[in-house]
């Protein structure tokens, strides 16, 4: 399984130059673009799109931050500047459907862009994976077997509580024939990883514990072999927690896209 992509990732600009239109735009997001760990997930989402033959494109260097962290931090100006600039690009390319690799981008584009002139059908990558499994286009064969492995899924706040998506990521895991175990606080009662609301970019306030440690301890109680994530920020927080608990040898934190790619040997 090479990390490298053995195919070209098409950009919108190239597609338009060729007079083509993609079925779906893949909104990569800042973490997915720059964060080394999240880049892996980004490439895996591309592998899935490529594998099932969906005509997709990315914005490449034309993409910019959705403005989510600015908005949560209270800077509505900066958020709307970002949003309107992005909407101009998206509308300029006549985009109809978007897939995101990040629940924060997903929430912002889906819920907050329409009021500023940008209305698109937006899905999170776990929803696409679920859909592809339902359609029989993705199975869990030809790759690494997760059969019987203990997997616990951490609900990202902006996917779960924020948008009520609890089932799609779980369905994407069910197909693995693994042993899915829920943490005590899951689904609508899920505990935040500690990164939301722009916390990702600052030190936590004074307290007696870091939130990601509280969460990782709960995850470890299920004695998992894999902690499944669906958000690059949760990924960072959970991976840091695993490192701090010295559990890197025993527990892997993987995005659902990564798990899917591995299971299918893509």
């Amino acid at each position: 399984m090479s990390e490298q992509l053995n195919f070209e990732v098409p950009t919108m600009a190239e597609m338009i130059a060729k007079g083509e239109e993609p079925e779906i735009l893949f909104w990569v997001g800042c973490a997915g673009s720059y964060d080394e760990r999240a880049q892996k997930t980004t490439r895996d989402i591309c592998k899935i799109l490529h594998h099932v033959g969906i005509k997709y494109a990315v914005l490449g260097t034309e993409e910019s931050c959705t403005g989510d962290p600015a908005k949560r931090a209270g800077n509505e100006f900066l958020f709307q500047m970002q949003a309107m600039t992005n909407i101009e690009v998206l509308n300029g390319y006549n985009i109809k459907k978007i897939i995101t690799g990040c629940p924060h981008c997903f929430n912002t584009i889906k819920n907050e862009y329409p009021g500023l002139g940008g209305s698109y059908e937006v899905i999170h990558h776990t929803q696409l994976i679920q859909q592809l499994i339902d359609e029989g286009k993705l199975k869990a064969e030809g790759g690494e077997s997760f059969k019987g492995k203990k997997i616990t899924y951490h609900d990202p706040c902006y996917l779960g509580r924020g948008n009520g998506i609890y089932e799609a990521p779980r369905k994407a895991l069910e197909v693995l024939d693994a042993q899915l175990v829920e943490m005590k606080r899951c689904k609508s009662n899920g505990l935040c990883c500690g990164a939301g609301g722009a916390q990702m970019f600052k030190e936590p306030e004074k307290g007696n514990k870091d939130i990601n440690i509280e969460r990782i301890e709960e995850a470890l109680e299920t004695q998992p072999q894999v902690i499944a994530a669906g958000c690059p920020f949760c990924m960072t927080m959970l991976s840091d927690g695993i490192k701090l608990k010295d559990q890197e040898q025993n527990v892997e934190v993987l995005d659902i896209a990564e798990i899917t790619v591995r299971a299918n040997g893509l």
Binding site: L5, E8, V9, T11, V28, C30, G32, S33, Y34, Q39, T42, R43, C46, V58, G60, T61, E63, S64, C65, G67, P69, A70, A73, N75, L78, M81, Q82, A198, M200, F201, K202
Partner: peptide
């Protein structure tokens, strides 16, 4: 700092927008 980065580079971290597509 994060807000400044978004304003200047279009990302919450100090990375160049020109590098945004390097992951591929």
């Amino acid at each position: 700092g994060m807000l400044g980065n978004i304003e200047n580079n279009g990302a919450p971290w100090k990375y160049s927008p020109a590098d945004r597509f390097n992951w591929a």
